[in-house]
Simulated scan of single mutants.
Amino acid sequence: MLKAARGLALACHPGPALVVTVVAGVLGASVGYPPARIALLAAAMLADQLSVGWSNDWIDAERDRSVSRTDKPIAVGLVSRRTVGTAAWIALASTLALTVPLGAPALVTHAIAVASAWSYNAWLKRTVFSVVPYLVSFGLLPAIVTLGSTEHALPAWWVVTAGCLLGVAAHVTNVLPDLEQDRLTGVRGFAHVLGARVGGLVAFGVLALVGVVVAVGAVGIGDLSGAAGVLVLVGCTITVLIAAAGVLLTLRGERSRWLMRLIMAAAIVDVIALVAAGPVLSA
């Protein structure tokens, strides 16, 4: 039982799941969610991420076994494929059920976002369109938050744009360490077409653009000023510096999970900037 529980915990891709859940909760707080509503939003997003992570390992189980993936719980026998698949479907149902109290606009948006993520796992990851689910799901995250508020407000266009760009960076850096194993199993997605070096440069170039978009949107278009405006600019500057570090690592041939960790670190910095920009996040 403990072995299976450990396998499930590892199969949910805990790092990204935790980051996305925290991001959603913090964004909810920044647009004025009361504590109970923040908890509900975070629970819905956690269920979302669990369903996506588990469905990924469930669908890829045979492929992971064929290339002896030692980092995959199903492939090494920690948990059965059936258990992970069942957990994925339960988490998916929980995602939608937990989003219902946030209102119909948030529910529809969240359903599209999670369906997009599942489409990546089921099929699109093996095609040149593999980046599309990341564009859609990351771009819709701030929309789920603002539409889930009591005012059901639409997000500012620049917030959605920043989310889409962050999704591209996350997708490419997540795939880079697995390029060779993916090639052996017939996976040829967007990042595979770009290749390791070009892919890394594209990912961190896009990440730098995220910082620029947030700064221009919040301070330039949203007219955010004072301490909040300064915090946004500082956060965006840090994002650009992280992107520069990623470019240097890519040029040196780095292809490890550290590239994805840089993206997650930048995402946290950007969220702090968006918290400061809370009053102008909605359209």
Rank of each mutant, 00 (worst) to 15 (best):
residue 181 Q to I: 06
residue 153 A to I: 09
residue 8 L to Y: 10
residue 282 S to C: 13
residue 276 A to G: 13
residue 205 G to K: 00
residue 79 V to R: 12
residue 40 L to N: 00
residue 245 A to V: 12
residue 255 R to T: 15
residue 94 S to F: 08
residue 131 V to L: 11
residue 207 L to E: 01
residue 151 E to A: 14
residue 66 S to T: 06
residue 177 P to W: 03
residue 252 R to P: 01
residue 74 I to C: 10
residue 132 V to H: 12
residue 137 S to R: 05
residue 179 L to W: 11
residue 184 L to Q: 15
residue 155 P to N: 04
residue 214 V to W: 10
residue 145 V to S: 09
residue 197 R to H: 12
residue 81 R to E: 15
residue 242 I to K: 00
residue 72 K to E: 00
residue 127 T to V: 07
residue 25 G to S: 11
residue 58 W to C: 07
residue 172 V to D: 02
residue 178 D to W: 04
residue 52 V to N: 03
residue 33 Y to P: 02
residue 125 K to Q: 00
residue 119 S to H: 12
residue 259 L to R: 01
residue 263 I to S: 04
residue 133 P to I: 00
residue 148 G to N: 05
residue 240 V to F: 01
residue 54 W to D: 09
residue 195 G to K: 05
residue 190 F to S: 08
residue 113 A to I: 05
residue 213 V to G: 03
residue 15 G to N: 05
residue 158 W to L: 06
residue 9 A to H: 06
residue 265 A to R: 07
residue 45 M to D: 13
residue 250 T to I: 01
residue 33 Y to V: 05
residue 283 A to W: 14
residue 213 V to A: 01
residue 125 K to H: 01
residue 143 A to H: 09
residue 94 S to M: 10
residue 86 T to Y: 13
residue 154 L to H: 11
residue 40 L to Y: 03
residue 141 L to R: 05
residue 101 P to L: 09
residue 79 V to C: 12
residue 214 V to I: 15
residue 30 S to E: 06
residue 225 S to H: 14
residue 159 V to G: 00
residue 14 P to Q: 06
residue 96 L to N: 03
residue 204 F to V: 01
residue 91 A to L: 04
residue 149 S to A: 14
residue 276 A to H: 08
residue 264 M to P: 02
residue 213 V to I: 14
